[in-house]
């Protein structure tokens, strides 16, 4: 598994990518309070591990795999914010820093329990960014505990198909959609265990084109986000990333 530092990077890149832009080296350096050269160094490593696509001067964008890791931690972070704010009554401007400290020690079990207790919150309280969706194979919260147990027995890296970048391969883990769309996606061959490859991603959050079962399929971004795929951790991020200071950084979105 990745270290806290890798997680911090992924989380920070995720925040930039969320606005639709690649994360630039200088911006990341400022946000994480480290020097630009060490950011560049780290981005190269992350790119080697297949977690980001990095182009010098343009910046870094998370791959589907990077996204899967980033969303795990972002989900915990935002659930924590919700919990601290809604259940414990902390002030909005406080919850972010608290969540930053707690997120790395929060287990998946507790995070999912929080999600259940809060009745699947959609956004975080401070800047109303969306909480990444639950990656368990569940239809509703009733299945949560059982699915969590199953996921603990066989951990897998799951993310939405819409997060994959051109050229990435994955296997369909499950489809979470309304009846009509669900059957449609199954009929088109996106059944569990189907291997697929992203051939093209249309710009401006457009559709994704995938190669599946010897054909090409274009899926609108909405439908693609219903398809959860498992990414093989062939190249797991390595340990011993350069030290990234964990406290004292400047983060986005302090609501003042």
């Amino acid at each position: 598994m990745s270290t806290d530092s890798v997680q911090e990077y992924l989380e920070a890149i995720h925040a930039f990518n969320e606005t639709g832009e690649p994360a630039k080296t200088t911006e990341l350096a400022e946000k994480l309070a480290v020097s630009p050269p060490s950011v560049t160094e780290m981005l190269k490593r992350l790119a080697e591990d297949g977690l980001v696509e990095y182009e010098p001067y343009k910046g870094a964008t998370l791959t589907g795999m990077g996204m899967a890791y980033a969303e795990r931690i972002v989900r915990k972070h935002r659930l924590l914010e919700r919990y601290l704010h809604d259940s414990l009554g902390l002030k909005r401007e406080k919850v972010h820093d608290e969540a930053c400290r707690l997120e790395h020690s929060l287990s998946d079990d507790v995070a999912d329990a929080m999600c259940r207790a809060l009745d699947q919150p959609a956004t975080c309280p401070d800047d109303h960014n969306p909480i990444p969706p639950c990656s368990l194979e569940v239809k509703d919260c009733d299945d949560c505990v059982a699915a969590r147990k199953k996921a603990n027995d066989r951990p897998r890296l799951v993310t939405q198909l819409s997060n994959l970048r051109t050229g990435e391969e994955a296997v369909v883990a499950f489809v979470r959609a309304g009846n009509g769309a669900y059957k449609r996606l199954l009929d088109m061959g996106l059944t569990q265990g189907t291997r697929l490859r992203v051939v093209n991603v249309a710009p401006f959050k457009g559709p994704v084109e995938i190669a599946v079962r010897d054909t090409r399929l274009a899926l609108g971004r909405g439908l693609a986000s219903f398809v959860f795929v498992e990414i093989s951790e062939g190249k797991a991020p390595r340990h011993g990333a350069p030290p990234g200071p964990h406290s004292g950084r400047r983060w986005r979105g302090h609501a003042q």
Partner: peptide, 10 residues
């Protein structure tokens, strides 16, 4: 009615 997303064979 339910919005239909784009599913189309290329």
């Amino acid at each position: 009615g339910e919005p239909t997303g784009l599913v189309m064979e290329m």
